[in-house]
Amino acid sequence: MIPAIQLEQVQKHFGGLAALKGVDLTIEQGEFFALLGPNGAGKSTLINLLAGLLKPTSGKLSVLGFDVQAQYADARRALGVVPQELVFDPFFNVREMLRFQAGYFGRGRENDAWVDEIIECLGLTDKAHTNMRRLSGGMKRRALIAQALAHKPPVIVLDEPTAGVDVELRQMLWEFIKRLNREGHTIILTTHYLEEAETLCSRVAMMKQGEIVALDSTQNLLNRLPGKNLQLKLADALPTSLMDLVKFADGLDYTLALNEVAQVEFVLTELRAANVAVVDMQLIEADLEDVFVNLVGRA
């Protein structure tokens, strides 16, 4: 199968600064992929090269097999990018912007149902006729995400989509993005919230100073370090007595932080007492943040 994204020996220099130092990366279609790294690692540079907003100093990039320069029209049609900066056009309202954006990609009225669906799924229904200028920061971020999806691109790149966004939208956004992934869209995201990457993404690249320092499945990366995290998939909600231990929760999936392995006994006792069945359980050695700090160091 043609990879969703392919980079071969991609270098990008800004004057004397090497922002990318010969990056090789292949992301398959249908993956949910995280690009992690401290500020200035080169994540956005990589994304902007894919989007054609920057030109590589050397190397080749392609989206669904289309060279981002030689076949830019096909490459860009295949790609939806949520930029990191919160940009907007103050002249128009949300729905107008989405229709324009779809129109730029050659989509017409037949696309309106999809635009309405995005508006609904991102919780923008009330704001569909509000001028972009008058949206709150988080609402602007939603609109920005919606714009990237307006032409229903097979490959979706989100550059820190959850920066400055409330819990409700995060959940809403990830539900929607997970659905798109199930329907076959390839998802690539950058985030500084490592739990997000850990629960959502099946594969992770960690970048540091323009290079990829780790590229592996999330699971393999997590197995690299010793640690004490208990991952639970429950049939019912977690009893309140265990809430203090929660490190991360997504629906009925919980990650509990344990001080020592012996605490597993206590957790199981509490669950039994509350009559909550355990669907799945795993003692995880460490979380992505530990791996990240280990590989990349504190930013």
Binding site: A73, V87, F88, D89, P90, Q101, Q147
Partner: peptide
């Protein structure tokens, strides 16, 4: 204006030649 606001990217991301 689009450059200063940054919203010119919405056009630059598209297949428009």
């Amino acid at each position: 204006q689009s450059k200063v606001m940054g919203n010119l990217v919405f056009v630059l991301l598209t297949p428009i030649s």
